[in-house]
C-alpha cells in the first residue's frame, strides 16, 4: 500500500539535496527519455535558489573569497544544513559557524566574523519597529539623579553588538568604498574591533564602538540598572565614556524606553 512505503517525498527530497538517489523512482517523460535529466532541473532550482539567498545576505563574505569559492562553500552548507524555516531572510544564521569549521576557509581567519556581521545586518533590517524616546524625555530622566542609577533602558530591537578578534568593521566598511581594494589595503585585519549594528529609521548602520560602550549596552540589554551598567562598563574599560555612549545611542534612536522601578521611586 502507498501509506506503507517509505515516503515518496522523503526520497524525492533526499535526491534533491544529496543526489542519493540521483533520481527518485516512478518518474516518467512523454518521450521515454531518461527522467534524471528532467529531475536535475528541480535539484538545480533548489540548490541554486538557496545559494542565491545566501549570496544576497553575505555580499562582503562573498567578495572576500570570490564568487566561485563562496558558491562552492554555500552549496556544501545548503546540503548539510537545508533550511528549517520557510522564511529565507534568516537562512544564513548558521553560515558563520559553518565557515569557522570549514577547513578551506581557514586561510581567511576573519571570514566567519564578517559573515556574523552581515547576518546581524539582515536581522537588524527586518527587526521589529520601535519609536525612540525623544531627546527631551531622555534628558529629563538623565537629570533626575536621585533615581537615575536605578533606571532601566530599553534598546531598539534592531540593535546588536559583535565583538571580534579581527577588524570586522573596517573590513566590512572597506567593501562599501568605491575603491574596495585600496580601502582594504589600509586595514589591519588582526586588529580587534567591536561592531554596533543598529537600524536608524530605515537604514542599518554599522559602526565601531569602544569596549566600554559594548559592555554598557550588553548590561542594559540584560536588564541591569543604569548605575550598575555604567560601573561594569568602567571596570571592563577604564576609558569608558558614559556621555559619549549615551550620545551615540541617542543619535541612532536606539533608546526606546527608560523606566524607573517602583521600589526606586517610593
Amino acid at each position: 500500500m502507498r501509506g506503507m512505503r517509505v515516503s515518496d517525498q522523503r526520497i524525492f527530497a533526499d535526491a534533491l539535496l544529496t543526489g542519493r538517489p540521483s533520481c527518485p523512482p516512478g518518474l516518467t517523460a512523454w518521450n521515454g527519455s531518461d527522467p534524471e535529466r528532467r529531475f536535475a532541473i528541480y535539484r538545480s532550482n533548489v540548490i541554486v535558489s538557496l545559494i542565491d539567498a545566501l549570496a544576497d545576505t553575505f555580499p562582503v563574505t562573498q567578495q572576500l573569497v570570490g564568487e566561485e569559492f563562496f558558491r562552492a562553500m554555500a552549496r556544501l552548507f545548503v546540503q548539510e544544513h537545508p533550511p528549517r524555516s520557510r522564511i529565507l531572510a534568516f537562512y544564513g544564521e548558521g553560515l558563520a559557524n559553518f565557515i569557522e569549521a570549514f577547513a578551506p576557509a581557514a586561510a581567511v581567519p576573519y571570514l566567519a566574523d564578517v559573515a556574523r556581521l552581515e547576518m546581524l545586518r539582515v536581522s537588524a533590517y527586518h527587526a521589529a519597529d520601535a519609536m525612540p524616546l525623544t531627546a527631551e524625555a531622555i534628558s529629563r530622566l538623565l537629570a533626575d539623579v536621585a533615581v537615575l542609577p536605578e533606571a532601566r533602558i530599553g534598546l531598539h530591537p534592531s540593535l546588536a553588538v559583535l565583538r571580534s578578534g579581527h577588524a570586522v568593521v573596517s573590513l566590512w566598511a572597506a567593501h562599501q568604498a568605491a575603491d574596495a581594494a585600496q580601502a582594504l589595503a589600509a586595514v589591519d585585519p588582526e586588529a580587534a574591533e567591536t561592531a554596533l549594528v543598529l537600524r536608524a529609521g530605515l537604514d542599518v548602520e554599522i559602526s565601531r564602538i569602544p569596549d566600554g560602550a559594548a559592555a554598557f549596552i550588553e548590561q542594559m540589554r540584560q536588564g541591569a540598572a543604569f548605575g550598575d551598567a555604567a560601573e561594569q562598563a568602567s571596570a571592563a574599560d577604564p576609558a569608558f565614556d558614559l556621555a559619549a555612549t549615551l550620545g551615540l545611542l541617542m543619535r541612532g534612536g536606539a533608546i526606546t524606553t527608560m523606566t524607573i522601578p517602583r521600589s526606586a521611586t517610593s
Binding site: D8, Q9, Y42, S49, A53, R86
Partner: peptide
Amino acid sequence: WASHGDVFLNDLLPVPYHAG
C-alpha cells in the same frame, strides 16, 4: 509541495495525480 518534515526546499515540487 515545498517542504518535507521540517526541511524547506524552496521550490515548487510536483505532485502525482491520483485519488490519494
